[in-house]
């Protein structure tokens, strides 16, 4: 336990990602300590989703390295859970909610082995945690946007990871779902998990998060919300004179 607390959850050095000639992320250095609930904020096209995908090795960077608890992602697959953007999949896929949540157990099962009763039980528990147990047999296309988001969250919960990477989990969900999700995130942090969340609503940053990273292709700033979430950094990130009521 002592050794793991000295290592940061995520350490990124000189990370550069480009699609064709256009750099999407430029020379990012970032250290995410273990146990923080961190927001990644920045304008559209700032590379927020790309940063998450680069951490997860979904996208190959042209330079730089990502370390998860001091090792490359490939060796730490079981410690990281991913909640993609809701719109990244086709919800008309022929399956039901429980089945999607079960997918979270596939990683620990490894190749070929099928999920059994134990995995099903874990999936049902996760569904209950996100308040979706009664929808377990619902065809996924029949779920509302907020419910689909909860299903994705449940799928990540099943992985029982140490680090959670979430790409805009609050996008297109109603206030009730947003509250429910943030409560789950805060509970996870209490358990010592590290959460990294791409977030768009600047107003709620101080209320929801304790750590924040400003990103606009380059890394602008990263640290505790109470220290660095200020108009200066917001202006640097968004390029216009930004004023947000921050509780200091």
């Amino acid at each position: 336990m002592n050794t793991s607390t000295t290592l940061p959850a995520i350490q990124i050095d000189d990370l550069t990602v480009a699609y064709d000639y256009k750099p999407v992320l430029w020379d990012i250095d970032l250290v995410v300590p273990e146990g923080v609930l961190m927001a990644i904020v920045g304008p559209n096209g700032a590379g927020k989703s790309t940063l998450i995908k680069a951490i997860l090795s979904i996208i190959k960077p042209i330079a730089g390295s990502v370390q998860v608890f001091g090792q490359p992602y490939k060796k730490q697959v079981d410690k990281v859970a991913y909640v993609p953007q809701k719109g990244s999949v086709d919800w008309d896929f022929p399956t039901v909610a429980l089945d999607v949540v079960m997918m979270g157990t596939y990683g620990s099962l490894g190749w070929i082995k099928r999920p059994g009763q134990k995995e099903k039980k874990r999936a049902l528990e996760a569904l209950e945690k996100v308040g979706m147990l009664e929808f377990k047999n619902r065809q996924i296309s029949q779920l509302s946007g907020g419910q689909q988001q909860r299903i994705f969250l449940a799928r990540a919960l099943v992985q029982n990871a140490s680090i959670y990477l979430m790409d805009e989990p609050f996008q297109g969900v109603d206030a009730t779902t947003e509250k429910a999700i943030i409560n789950i995130l805060k509970e996870l942090r209490k358990q010592g998990k590290t959460l990294i969340v791409v977030h768009h609503d600047l107003q709620t940053v101080p209320e929801y998060f304790d750590w924040v990273t400003f990103l606009n292709v380059k890394g602008i700033a990263s640290g505790p919300v109470k220290d660095i979430f200020n108009d200066d950094n917001l202006t640097k990130t968004y390029g216009i004179n930004y004023k947000v009521a921050v509780n200091k």
Partner: peptide
């Protein structure tokens, strides 16, 4: 039948499949 689980995962969410280490 052998790769049923993996193929289903790939069909639904290829990026996620990758993050699980497949």
């Amino acid at each position: 039948l052998l790769f049923w689980k993996e193929l289903k995962l790939l069909l639904f969410d290829a990026d996620y499949t990758k993050t699980l280490g497949f």
